[in-house]
Design a protein around this nucleic acid. Structure first.
Lengths: 214, 214
DNA sequence: TCACTTTTGTTAAATAGTTCACAATCTAAT
DNA sequence: ATTAGATTGTGAACTATTTAACAAAAGTGA
């Protein structure tokens, strides 16, 4: 049913559209035009219309989009109708921040358990999520788990990912500053804060230069 | 001197190249070919050669690239020769994780101070970084600060960004799940973990479908 | 109902980014 | 020195993404 030819760039914007629509519905906004939505998100309105067009005609000419309808459609498209279970590996500060973040509320995604090496943490709970010993990971059956969030020190990221893969997990959100080397049936997304900060500083410096020299 | 026509996509890869080269130099690797570098980073070797070519001829035919030379070149290009000062706004778990992360070691970037609203935190230090009261932010002179890392709750992100802007900060790394609305002389990068997790789940589900239906 | 405005959905054009293909040229080994 | 092999740097082709332009359709209000 769903179109397989949705461009990557479009697919990556869907979660942002979805969350923004949730906000709009909450504040009681029932309709929105592509241009108003675009102003809000700082995305060109044509891009937004084109993105939606990959899924068929979701709006009405002369009217715009029904926020509730669009939100419901995106929820289905993003598979947010069924709960996605994820595990968190590495309960440091970043891991704790993610455990405290209520993914379930807006995304129908739940961190069902966490793993850590620290004996003081094992057996305790953070925000209602129980922490298990890291060495159980490789032997657990996690085939019902959609993805693992990796927040371990960089030196252990590859090893932890391999254990998670062995336990049946195929999706990874990697926060460690290293490129994971995994078989092709694994899918990895990489969030690298150091790289983001460096990129920010690079662009700041270069846009300043442009202004000075032009 | 530096080329202004470096594509955005290239510029965004430079920090990754730089960090990887640091690792290679550390383990004593003195030369690398674009194909070996590409295998390591999971980036096509042509893309790597083309990226470097925007800065001139950095390699040697039949030999490859000198890791030390390339790293030094990128350090200069990324303005890592001079220390970049940043501030952190919002000392929750995520903020604390970032304060504990030693940006200075690899990136010549230092979080020089932090702001928070919690009276219990104000005046204390986390990882050697002193925490100041949020209401000092608007009146402080932060014109020597390159960027602000925003790790405040979503409801206060816009307000905090405006105060930081008023204090003289123009660059923002925003971790709050909201689009900031700031004047055009501000530059914002957005890291949204919720969006990343949702995008991961979307891609996982759709690549599975493809495999089943093909 | 009619005239006029709004806004979508879409084709086509423009821009950006990646990959191919290969000449040029350097290395390395004899 | 010579030669075989390696590897860069780069135009050209290709692919992906964004933006422009506008006809078609629906809304709005008299």
């Amino acid at each position: 049913m769903a179109n397989q030819n949705v461009p990557q760039a479009t697919a990556e914007r869907l979660p942002l559209y979805y969350r923004t629509l949730q906000r709009l519905v909450t504040i009681g906004k029932t309709r929105i035009s592509s241009s108003e939505f675009g102003d809000l998100l700082q995305i060109d309105s044509t891009t937004i219309r084109k993105d939606f067009s990959y899924f068929g005609a979701l709006g009405r000419k002369g009217y715009g989009y029904d926020t509730q309808y669009l939100m419901d459609f995106l929820r289905k498209t993003l598979y947010q109708d069924e709960l996605s279970k994820v595990v968190l590996i590495g309960v440091g500060h970043l891991g704790t921040a993610l455990l405290n973040h209520n993914f379930q509320k807006n995304n129908n995604t739940k961190i069902v358990k966490a793993y850590d090496v620290d004996p003081k943490k094992i057996g305790t709970e953070v925000s209602g999520t129980k922490i298990y010993a890291m060495n159980e990971l490789a032997t657990d059956d996690n085939s019902d788990i959609t993805a693992a969030i990796l927040t371990v020190p960089v030196a252990h990221a590859q090893e932890a990912a391999e254990m998670a893969l062995a336990s049946g997990i195929h999706g990874f959100l990697n926060f460690s500053p290293t490129v994971l080397s995994l078989p092709s049936h694994a899918y990895v997304r990489h969030v690298d804060m150091t790289v983001e900060l460096q990129a920010l500083i690079y662009f700041l410096n270069h846009s300043m230069e442009e202004r000075n020299s032009d």
